[in-house]
């Protein structure tokens, strides 16, 4: 009897409910049983105040369409809030992106006028960026050399990203959506290694030895295991 097979197991933890989904059955079967459990069989557990839900999919990959459908089913009970959907499977694209985001890419070249360098994740440039040259990264940018051109860190919106350089003399700096023109907005003749960061949506500059105070958790967030 297929109906007796437990496709969706519901467990209670102190952080709310965990829905453990069978990974071997068809998605159709899974949705039918989930709907059934939510609408009929488990009324006493699934009613009352707001309950956070964690869904564990095991080795099953859901497309964004399928994930949307799953969320629709959970939504049938208005007091259930999906906290996270965990799957042990990710796409190759996501894996590559995660890898890029968690490692620092090293480039050795001079970015001259009219040239540009783009990267996903953190970027370490061993060389100069000359005026008229551009460097873009979704993560942070570190330059062991002179930054005289334009650098855009967190170019997909990461406001935590920083731009550090041995010699910080940029024509323009951008972090996330903030653009600043150093010669007009701040002039600093310092020869120390400095970095730019966002503080309350404003571009700020400080010596690199202050970074542990300002971005203490930025790199520790990345899981290097």
């Amino acid at each position: 009897m297929t109906t007796t097979k437990n496709i969706v197991t519901i467990k209670g933890t102190k952080d709310g409910l965990v829905f453990i989904m069978d990974e071997t059955c068809s998605l159709e079967e899974l949705f039918i049983q989930l709907k059934d459990k939510i609408e009929h069989s488990h009324q006493q557990i699934l009613s009352g105040p707001l309950i956070p839900i964690t869904i564990k999919l095991g080795h099953r990959y859901l497309t964004s369409e399928e994930e949307k459908e799953l969320r629709e089913i959970i939504k049938l009970k208005s007091n259930l809030v999906v906290k996270s959907i965990d799957s042990l499977v990710i796409t190759k694209e996501q894996a590559l992106l995660d890898k890029l985001m968690s490692t620092v890419r090293v480039e050795t070249r001079t970015i001259r006028s009219g040239q540009e360098l783009r990267h996903m994740g953190d970027l370490l440039l061993l060389g100069d960026i000359n005026p008229g040259g551009c460097i873009y990264s979704t993560g942070s940018i570190f330059v062991l050399g002179a930054l005289r051109g334009m650098a855009h860190a967190g170019c997909e919106g990461n406001e935590e990203a920083i731009i550090a350089a041995s010699l910080l003399r940029p024509t323009q700096l951008r972090i996330a959506h903030v653009i600043s023109r150093p010669p007009d907005e701040w002039i600093d003749g310092s020869n120390d290694m400095e970095f730019a960061y966002l503080e309350n949506g404003q571009m700020s500059i400080d010596k690199l030895n202050q970074i542990h105070k300002l971005r203490a958790n930025y790199w520790s967030k990345i899981d290097y295991t």
Binding site: R112, S113, G114, Q115, N130, P131, G132, G133
Partner: peptide
Amino acid sequence: EPTAVRDADRVIGLLE
């Protein structure tokens, strides 16, 4: 002069 240096830099990039 800055303009000439900028253009030289561009050309060096192309020549490389």
